[in-house]
Nucleic acid binder design. Structure first.
Length: 254
DNA sequence: ATGGCAATACCCTATTGA
């Protein structure tokens, strides 16, 4: 069984890459972030034709998420129950015996910005909802673009990020709080190449110089953890013409 | 050594991303 997450940075632009990727990587489910499409513009037919069921939840210009699965997903939830949000950032569904949650965490922009206040409140809301969700679904995976680099080794230059978002103690405390709920970072269950990242800035030859961040994550519940056999980042996607700035992350389970 | 991007909306320059 395989699950994946990918921030596509506009599904309108990245749809051909997604279809090609699904053909080459027949995962059981994948969650997408930053589709940047209103619901009426979502390319459901092309995704169905590729062999996937899909639920989506979007808005114009920003955000937007989707859950694709080979078998139909049940009990779909959009955004965080109990946290009123104007932005389309989360979608959940049950695929087989696993509760799959796909999320596009807020960026935060700057530590002193209103957007950072929103990021903290959103994370509070996520944790509260997730705690109850995990009680109802022992086999659960939370994946997406977390916009948090959990450790210094997840950032190409930790010193340069001091005072900025993505690596701040506040954000890392929130990431740890998710782990404390009983979740495990699937990527770190295995030995990985040093300087492994999932996002590289389009500017400054970020990818060519491997100046990146590992901010796209797959967290698994205790019940799911023993089934995990691999977790990888598909860097190849970042090498294509017109790439997303994020690479897909894939987890394999027994 | 430095700086180098992309997508969207709306009206061609601004905003946002991370």
């Amino acid at each position: 069984m395989k699950f994946a997450t990918w921030n596509v940075n506009s599904l309108a632009v990245r749809l051909p890459q997604l279809i090609d990727w699904l053909n080459a990587n027949p995962v059981d489910a994948i969650v997408l972030q930053e589709t940047k499409l209103t619901d009426d513009k979502f390319p459901a037919q092309a995704i169905n034709d590729a062999g996937y069921q899909v639920h989506w939840f979007g808005q114009k210009t920003y955000n937007g998420v989707a859950l694709l699965s080979r078998t139909p997903a049940q009990d779909i939830v959009k955004n965080i129950t109990g946290y009123a949000d104007e932005q389309a950032r989360l979608i959940a569904g049950t695929v087989g015996d696993v509760r799959v949650i796909g999320a596009y965490f807020p960026n935060g922009q700057a530590l002193d910005s209103d957007k950072f206040v929103y990021k903290m409140a959103w994370l509070d809301g996520l944790r509260a909802w997730l705690a109850s969700e995990m009680q109802q679904h022992k086999q659960l995976v939370l994946m997406g673009d977390f916009n948090i680099a959990p450790e210094d080794r997840d950032c190409y230059d930790p010193a340069a990020f001091v005072g900025q978002t993505h690596t701040s103690p506040q954000e890392r405390a929130h990431f740890q709080a998710l782990l404390d709920l009983g979740l495990t970072d699937a990527y770190r269950m295995f030995e990985q190449p040093p300087k492994s990242y999932s996002w590289w800035d389009y500017r400054m030859l970020g990818f060519q110089k491997n100046k990146g961040l590992r901010i796209d994550h797959i967290l698994v519940s205790e019940a799911l953890k023993p089934r995990v056999t691999a977790c990888t980042i598909d860097r190849q996607m970042r090498k294509l013409p017109k790439p997303s700035d994020h690479a897909p992350v894939i987890v394999t389970l027994d």
